[in-house]
Design a protein around this nucleic acid. Structure first.
Lengths: 243, 243
DNA sequence: CGCCAACTTGATAACATTCAATGTAGGTGG
DNA sequence: CCACCTACATTGAATGTTATCAAGTTGGCG
């Protein structure tokens, strides 16, 4: 039998959540809206929960829905015909999916851990955007931010060594956690080695070997619960920057 | 003496060009504006011309200007500390620079061939954008388009072989030429092997060898004037897609 | 026509992949 | 509660693609 099926939902799905009490409101695009606009958003929104390893967007499908992550982690990826996979990025609470999209989704999206999202019909979201320049401005800012991240990743994929890639990856997760007010040192890696490999353009074996190498050189330490402790942060930063 | 200097300009620089007669108006973000708005744009705009191989944006500099290419070709790139370079993309007439930008430019921009641009102060462009939702919408569309291209490039850099990278590159230039109403078959490559290498995450030697390989297999033919003739387009497409 | 930069080709080496085996941890059932 | 089982992670050995180092060749331009 197949490892996952047609959108099995966790208990409590499709509830209409109170945006006013939303824990990620300050992070999300919703921050661009006033309280009365938020209620408009809430009207067209559906809250939903997915299991881990559940694909809720398939590359090529008609893109009629947009999503906002409220808890959990997801990965966006593209596939080649023979199954080679490139993960474009990992998304966290507050991140938005389906903004920079044409008619059909240019990538698939799959949960890494159990994840909650807010789902919007794109058509109505477009209308709200047309009426609310603040929202549109916020979307442009988000697109710009994503573009900058994509360009950093292009430098990493095209020109960095395995060692530099892994160091950059740990630094990125650490910085991201701190930006979100979480602790930046024992960094939590919710994704497996295969996901890390497909994000960095490596194989799982090379990822594993490189972690070991950084551990041996005293730069990091691997902790239980898929956590990485940064022992020598300045050195990790230097490795990441290719110095 | 240094190979290039402090912004030497070709004759006829800093002229105030008539946007109404602009050859790339339909391609550019300007297409979002009506004739009377265009005049506002023209008021804050300066037309400028640069020699080939001239760097007019330096990574890290304060980003107070935005640019629109009106003729020529430029490359955007990032550098690592030891000089390794990744080219994020090549831009053609109608393309916009300085949109998805924070305080400082996240990349350098250098002309590939003699190039003409329109230059805008970002501050005033932002004001015009706030007043003209159509312009802002157009900018969001452009950012989305760039993001999709960046994601395709991430798949290429992370997961494609040298052969697939070169095939994808030729196909991309061919498609782009056709979108612009130019002929898509003898594809013109205005950039050198080093630029192609730094765009595809390869070395110049590998680029050269791979061109030879595709030539030997009868898929392409190298023509004078840095042109590539596509002999077997279906096969080139299959190679590009990793089949 | 000659020069110089860019491109091509050749030989060797290195980094990462591939194939294969072993180790470890989380989850399930006895 | 422990033993087992399965996933995943790590380690090992050999291969291969691409990089590196080095020598030609071509072609554009003065």
């Amino acid at each position: 039998m197949p490892p996952f099926d047609i959108g099995k939902l966790l208990p409590g799905n499709t509830e209409v959540a109170p945006c006013g009490a939303c824990p990620v409101r300050s992070l999300a695009v919703c921050s661009a809206l006033h309280t009365d606009d938020i209620s408009q958003l809430a009207d067209i929104m559906v809250a939903q929960r997915y299991d881990a390893q559940h694909t809720f967007i398939n590359e090529g499908d008609f893109a009629d829905q947009a999503y906002n992550i409220t808890s959990g982690t997801v990965k966006m990826y593209k596939l080649l015909a023979d199954g080679r996979r490139q993960i474009m990025g990992f998304l966290y609470p507050g991140d938005f999916i389906g903004l920079a999209v044409d008619q059909s989704y240019p990538y698939s999206v799959e949960t890494v851990v159990p994840t909650a999202v807010c789902r919007f019909p794109r058509k109505q979201l477009d209308e709200l955007m047309a009426a609310e320049p603040r929202l549109q401005k916020r979307m442009l800012a988000q697109a710009s931010h994503e573009l900058a991240a994509a360009q950093d990743q292009m430098l990493l994929l095209g020109r960095k060594t395995a060692r530099e890639k892994i160091a950059s990856f740990i630094m990125m997760l650490s910085r991201r956690a701190m930006e979100r007010g979480q602790q930046g040192n024992p960094v939590h890696l919710p994704m497996g080695r295969a996901d890390i490999a497909d994000f960095l353009g490596l194989t799982t074996e090379t990822v594993s070997r490189t972690f070991t190498q950084l551990k041996t050189s005293g730069t990091i330490r691997l902790r239980e619960g898929s956590k990485v402790a940064i022992i020598d942060r300045p050195q990790l930063e230097e490795i990441a920057d290719g110095v």
